[in-house]
Amino acid sequence: MSESAVEHVTAPAHHAAAESHHPTAVQYLVVAGILTVLTVCEIGVYYIPALQSVLVPLLLILSAGKFYLVAAYYMHLHFDSRIFSGLFFFPLTLAALILISLTLLLGFLAHHPGP
């Protein structure tokens, strides 16, 4: 948050600009189409035995794509003030780090089974 906040020092107060360029209904429908395709891919990947070895990376990439589309288009981060992107992606990064480090700390690094 803080860094994007700092950048705004030089460009304060776009009163009108912030709310204007929301996507049209057609764009929304296109995004919905892509989301559907991605979800079908996810489920497909899950059910195709040949892809089991690359299941995790494939699923992560597909879901990251969906995540981004919803955040950027439905939640308008792509169009709104960058401060909102900061407000979302900074905590998101932190959340991802917490998830990764907790999984490592409790799963791999300190696994001494008791007697």
């Binding site: 407000l87 905590p91 998101l92 932190l94 959340a95 991802a96 917490i98 998830l99 999984t103």
Partner: peptide, 13 residues
């Protein structure tokens, strides 16, 4: 929403 993100991250972890 930012705060909630961390909340769900802890539950998911």
């Amino acid at each position: 929403i930012g705060s909630e993100t961390v909340f769900f991250a802890c539950l998911i972890s």
